[in-house]
Design a protein around this nucleic acid. Structure first.
Lengths: 244, 244
DNA sequence: CTTATCATCTTGTCATACAAGTTGATAAGA
DNA sequence: TCTTATCAACTTGTATGACAAGATGATAAG
């Protein structure tokens, strides 16, 4: 758990930088600095290996890592394209590890649930400060939409509306980090509860709680919104469970 | 922004799965299921290419991606070792993208600052519920340590103590996700303020605010701790700035 | 028993070759 | 002239062989 922001002590062993590391660094620089702007720009592997004076594996591995990080899209036959970077790009790159963490250590699911509650409480406070009349209308529409799905043949439709509700609050907050993080957390949590969740009998309770939250957002009261969200999340939190 | 938790429509175009993708998936399965436990277990590339019936590039690229995700450690000459997975493993894999996001879009620094404040507020509430007498003692020690660094020749020593204070609160919360996220956010933020920060004249104010937070933690009052942390963060927030 | 040497295994890198997909130009047809 | 089909030239995906460089453990010398 040694902080990785610290300047390294002069006694640490030197790191062997592989060629692909250096190529990766150069390419990252170009993308970060905008020399390679989002679109169709990426040079071919042959051009890059000639330019950097390295073999194809070095270039190839660097490109592979850029692809894994979500910075570029590569497809057979065509040149690689630089993606436009966003907050969800970063989170997507840790998706696999996060899933392994949750499935490998069940208590991480509890930690994630706890973090999610705190996160949503903070988010709804921010949303309360910035919600416009249009935002309120969108949320009210969503509630009605969800109400219409109560007796839907596909039970998951109801849950998708629920997720959309929280997604919309994330957008209202105006912070793209919130939006991306909310999306990611919902994805990870839903991977472990969707298929065993019924909600039978709690649908109207959920809708009432959502309405209370929107009411608080409408009058711009952070405290009320936070309290309403807290009630909502702590009740429904029990629905996310690995076993039992 | 299409939700990636949704089941894919049956009309979407099929994905060409590369060989390295399949190898990666198999290896990820083995690590997640514990067949490959943390330690020295990883088979050599030759063994894997023979076992899976693919060429070395496919195996190699898969191993490379495992390395980038932080799941294994590879070194020239020796076999790859499986790392023990933790929350910071996941966050480290998005480090590069996060930095590009902040440096490329300056307003993301503001978004991150906002998110950090909300995050610390939630974290300190949790910490207030769980802090033990020993935890309080550690925090008090840290404050004294930081006080001794006020007139240190190296101004950054003071800041490192400050970061440690927040790091310790993260640990007290008992949630490893908080600890890892706190660490990561501090790292990203400090990359953009450490070198231009003076704090001259504010050192004692900082220490007083820290003391107020610890006092609240000691009596286990979430609300008081939250308020104290809010005062502290909103005052010092102005110190993080790209320009000006 | 300690230490130095070395054979062997490993990953890092390169070069070449071919398969498979994409793209744009060219030629045939309407 | 416009549309369409064909194809040549790129591109990435993959396999193979080769050599360099580091790590490891056994062996031999002291």
């Amino acid at each position: 758990m040694s902080g990785f922001g610290r300047p390294q002590n002069p006694g640490t062993k030197i790191v062997r930088t592989r060629l692909s590391d250096q190529v990766l660094e150069r390419l990252q620089e170009r993308i970060a600095s905008g020399v390679l702007s989002p679109g169709e720009q990426m040079p071919s592997e042959r051009e890059l290996m000639e330019e950097f004076g390295v073999g194809r594996p070095a270039v190839r591995e660097a490109m592979q890592r850029l692809h894994d990080a979500g910075l570029i899209s590569v497809s057979q036959g065509g040149r690689a394209r630089v993606n436009e970077i966003a907050a969800d790009t970063a989170l997507r790159s840790m998706d696999a590890v996060a899933r392994m963490l949750i499935s490998g250590f069940p208590n991480y699911l509890d930690h994630l649930k706890e973090a999610r509650i705190r996160f949503e409480l903070g988010m709804v406070e921010t949303a309360a400060e910035r919600a416009t009349a249009d935002d309120i209308a969108v949320l009210r529409d969503n509630i009605e939409m969800q109400r219409s799905k109560i007796s839907s043949p596909d039970a998951q439709e109801f849950i998708y509306c629920d997720m959309d509700f929280h997604r919309q609050i994330a957008e209202i907050s105006g912070n793209p980090i919130y939006a991306a993080l909310s999306e990611a957390i919902l994805t990870w949590l839903s991977a472990y509860h969707v298929h065993l969740l019924r909600w039978t009998g709690n649908e109207t309770t959920t809708l009432d709680e959502h309405s209370a939250i929107v009411d608080a957002l409408e009058v711009g009261s952070s405290e009320t919104a936070r309290d309403a969200m807290k009630v909502h999340l702590e009740r429904s939190s029990d629905l996310y469970r690995l076993t039992e």
